[in-house]
Design a protein around this nucleic acid. Sequence first.
DNA 1: CTCCCCGGGTTCATTGAAGAGACCTAGGGG
DNA 2: CCCCTAGGTCTCTTCAATGAACCCGGGGAG
Lengths: 192, 192
Amino acid sequence: MDLVTALVAKVGAMALGTDYAQQDCSLARALEVVGERWSLLIVRDAFYGVRRFNDFLAHLDIPRAVLTSRLRSLVAAGVLRKETYQSSPTRYGYVLTETGRELWLPLYGLAQWGERHVSERGARTLFSHADCGTRLDRHGSCPQCLRPVPPEDVMMRPGTPDQPREDPVSRALGGPHRLLTPITVDGTGRAG
Amino acid sequence: MDLVTALVAKVGAMALGTDYAQQDCSLARALEVVGERWSLLIVRDAFYGVRRFNDFLAHLDIPRAVLTSRLRSLVAAGVLRKETYQSSPTRYGYVLTETGRELWLPLYGLAQWGERHVSERGARTLFSHADCGTRLDRHGSCPQCLRPVPPEDVMMRPGTPDQPREDPVSRALGGPHRLLTPITVDGTGRAG
DNA sequence: CTCCCCGGGTTCATTGAAGAGACCTAGGGG
DNA sequence: CCCCTAGGTCTCTTCAATGAACCCGGGGAG
């Protein structure tokens, strides 16, 4: 490949390929950040309390290189923040920023849509208002308290899975759990 | 490559690759349908009133083959419906089904998130309640009427674009427009 | 002191999907 | 007869996901 061909290829790749650059639309902007494959599932796991590289890896069955790349771009976009949870040896985790937490509504909305319309057969995961125990409606509000529930006040618990996963993270999420509180994975030599 | 290698490669590609099969989660199910590149932008355009193959093409700058493929899978998933709008010569358009219309909330939520957090500088598109003219809040509700507004009662109008597009569809969307009503494209030899 | 483990990555070969553009087909219309 | 429009296919090239192997720094056990 000569230089001109290489340049043309490069410019072509920049113009389209990795982004929706020509779309003057906030949805396109949002999708540049969270629209790539795996991104929203990573954000979902972050809401579930997953924080560590290896836990995302085990729970998502995502190639390591792709996880590295997605975490990096989500941090760059301000959705996640890299946080040291232990020094000597230094260990990092990834937690949602306030910007990331504001993805709760669209993310919950998409999940509810999937529940209602794609291979419906009872909720796989149930979300309820931690204060009163009422199940959230499709808009993410509490029908009892009649207002939107922020993610930190949401409890999740497993519904009726069809093929339960058998990784440590899924086991850690086997019982009721408040969103955004770190999960405690044990069974692989890690303290709870 | 021998037969066994080929088989292993094929099974591997089916197990992952094109879907999130191992994820027992409604969000993953939803993303299998609308999570692919371009899918949500096509749905957005459908809310805007775009119905024809060539109009999607012009407005999205999407490769024709990809558009064909996405429209097909969105129809298969029950998000869009193929509709004849003219016979002899037969012409098809694509319109949102009720299932597709229920994507309004998560789609609007994502767009609002993008507006607030990704290169913010004033709304590119403004959405308001057709009945009273009030701008929608971030949850898609009308602050005046205090209830969620269904997409058919939403008016859109352009906000402050930074690099306005110059295709016929963008021009047709230049003024206030009620969601889900077909756009009328003129200027390319098509009657309004 | 050495070996091995753990957490968090990087590198590499393979392949499926996206992108760009030419081509196709059916039905009109000048 | 040729060309137009609408809605697509076909082909080639490039990009990015996958899966598996390898890397590296810090500890802890023997």
